[in-house]
Design a protein around this nucleic acid. Structure first.
Lengths: 206, 206
DNA sequence: GTCTATAAGGGGATAGAC
DNA sequence: GTCTATCCCCTTATAGAC
């Protein structure tokens, strides 16, 4: 039985190994989905044997859960930081840029999340209808106030948030399709940022 | 060996069975992904035994391929029909509405496609970098002409197309998340259509 | 802590009776 | 055409030596 599987005190070597497993599992789960991922593939990617991997995590499910939990802690941070300081439109545009940057920097995390939602979100249902819903409601009110006070044009706040998620995560999740269209040698992100800035500016600017 | 696995002449009963398998497999593949889907689950859903299922399709892979091929025949039809008749902005708005309607009417097809892209699109790579890319280039030129002649505002045509795909398919693919936020008893599509119409109108109207 | 060997079970596919 | 029984590989997880 592993002693420290739930994030308690760990030796340096334990931390290093669990981190390597996290990284390897993230790659494999993001690329293959939960069922498509195998412990063999994760162990290979992490450079250790399968039993060794299972010395650090008690099951495949446990690795996946750890990854999802870790992801959900930070995934909503950009939205949480949407606030009432400065110009409302700039705040929204900055949120869009930050989310797009996350797609670029953490495409595996985005795909892990997308796989989870696409297949019914059974493992994170409680987070979606609890914390996520609550956060969307809260930020919707903020956006609604901006509309009421004439800071931005009239818009459905909830669908505005959905559209930001959709448009930014698309560049990570549908990367295979985007690369096929623009060519593997072309970086789509500069054009994407320009396009999204234009889109939200024109839609919201009074 | 099945004689008619590749869409040749079939008896009425063969057609009916293969259709039932298609429908069942679509549900299961869309919900679970290729690896997550099992022949047991498909057979159960189709109301027949597993060997019976394999009498009509020689393998799990064959069922999946048949579904993907069928899907790809029609998936791009709305974009193909984007043309130069009538008002450019109306054409684009109609394309958006039609794509959104497809998400509503065919969510399983959308998720099947999303699963495929998300996991690297290895099985349809040739279609993406062939037919799809070609079609996007062609329609981009059309949109570019509308920009040049001042029919719509200046916009990156390729990213405009990406954004239409992203925003409309999002309502099918991320349904679990959307339902968690708006509530399972609320139909998000009317608001979604209003929101997307506003979005693209404001962005493109001269 | 890490390994080799292996148990246990799921799942794709086939054999052969009817 | 359809079924029951079964094969066999793949995959998760454990046993036990080192």
């Amino acid at each position: 039985m592993r002693q420290e599987a739930n994030g308690k005190a760990q030796t340096r070597i334990q931390k290093e190994k669990t981190a390597r497993i996290h990284t390897a599992a993230l790659s494999v789960f993001a690329a293959q989905g939960f069922r498509g991922a195998t412990l063999d593939a994760i162990a290979l990617e992490a450079g250790m044997s399968k039993p060794n991997l299972l010395y650090y995590f008690e099951s495949k499910e446990a690795i996946h859960t750890a990854l999802i939990d870790k992801l959900m802690q930070t995934w909503l941070d950009p939205l949480r930081e949407l606030n009432d300081e400065g110009e409302p439109l700039d705040n929204i545009l900055n949120y869009v840029k930050r989310k797009l940057q996350m797609s670029r920097d953490y495409p595996r995390e985005s795909r892990l999340f997308a796989n989870e939602i696409l297949q019914g979100a059974t493992r994170i249902q409680h987070l979606l209808s609890g914390e996520l819903k609550q956060l969307v409601n809260e930020k919707s009110k903020l956006i609604q106030r901006w509309v009421m006070t004439g800071k931005i044009r009239d818009v459905d706040p909830v669908h505005l948030i959905f559209s930001i998620w959709s448009l930014t995560q698309h560049y990570a999740d549908f990367d295979a399709q985007i690369q096929a269209v623009v060519g593997a040698d072309t970086d789509p992100y500069p054009d994407a940022e320009a396009y999204l800035t234009t889109l939200f500016s024109r839609m919201l600017q009074v």
